[in-house]
Every structure is written in structure tokens, then in C-alpha cells.
Amino acid sequence: MKRTAIKRKEKYQELDGVLEKYKGRKGVLIKALSEAQEMYGFLSREVLIHIACELDVPLSEVTSVVSFYSLFKTEPSGRCHIEICSGTACYVKGMQDLLETLEEEINIKPGEVTGDGRFGLSTVNCVGACSAAPVVKIGDELIGDVDSKRLKQLLGKYGHD
């Protein structure tokens, strides 16, 4: 037990920097999880156990929170993550066509990652750019007024041939 704990400690030095400032404070679990996700891209079991132990919160509580909020991911996504807005405005303006295009082009559905690990796909509930619906987020880039043609171009830009 001791040995694994030490190993964990070394591995999560960076995370510990973050956890240090939250230790003993109330209401910080979501913040800590968000920062951890930012660091590692997703929240692995090991990371969650580490957070649970360091913040002295039961692991059940941690996973309960993680499984409640849709932005927490417990699996890695593709190198390039695509989010399609599924909010009302985007739905009305044809976001389903975009999902279909992606299924045709790179053969993935929301929640999946392409075989080569290049693209990951998820939907998101409205990013607040409804007047430019339908809206797609690729990596950090938000793109409005997207149609299938544009989406295909974008896929090309991010390395799809």
C-alpha cells in the first residue's frame, strides 16, 4: 500500500500543486476535478482515487459527481475532439445532418473515438452561439453556420483525408 501511494505521489506532482490549495476547503471538489481534467484530458480511475485520498472525500462521492456532470470524461477522447451543439436552435437548424455527415465521413457516433484515435465526438447542450446555429466546436475553435460541406472541409483541415 505504502509503495503504491508513493508512486502515485510522484506521478501526480503537478496535480498535487492544485489539490494543495483546495485541501481542507469546502465545496471545491468540482473545481479540483475540472482542473484535473484540464491537465490530463480525462479523469482516470487512478486520478480519481488520488483526488479522493488527497481531498479526503469518499471515492463514491467523487465518482458520483463525475458521473453526474456531462463535461467530466472518464475515457480519453481522440486527439482532435469534435463537439456538435445539440441545443434547440442548432437542432432546428439541422445539427442532425452534421452528425450524419460525421458518421459517413469518419464513422463515429457521439461518445465514440475513431479507430486511429484521431477524432472524438460528443454532443453538447447549447454553447450560447445560437444565432449562428448550427454550431460546432473543434478543439478550442468554435465555428458557426456550419453545413455538411463546411464540416467536411474542416475535417480535412484537422487531418482527415
Binding site: K26, G27, L29, S70, L71, F72
Partner: peptide
């Protein structure tokens, strides 16, 4: 962190307190 119900005030309070 992505939950519509958190707009509801009692849910929002739980969320501010760092839980579900």
C-alpha cells in the same frame, strides 16, 4: 460542469457546495 438541472435553485446550491 454540464447539468441543466443546476439552474434550479436547490440544485444550484448543491453544486456551489461542490457536490452533485
Amino acid at each position: 460542469a454540464g447539468a441543466f438541472v443546476c439552474g434550479e435553485e436547490t440544485a444550484l446550491i448543491s453544486s456551489v457546495e461542490g457536490t452533485r
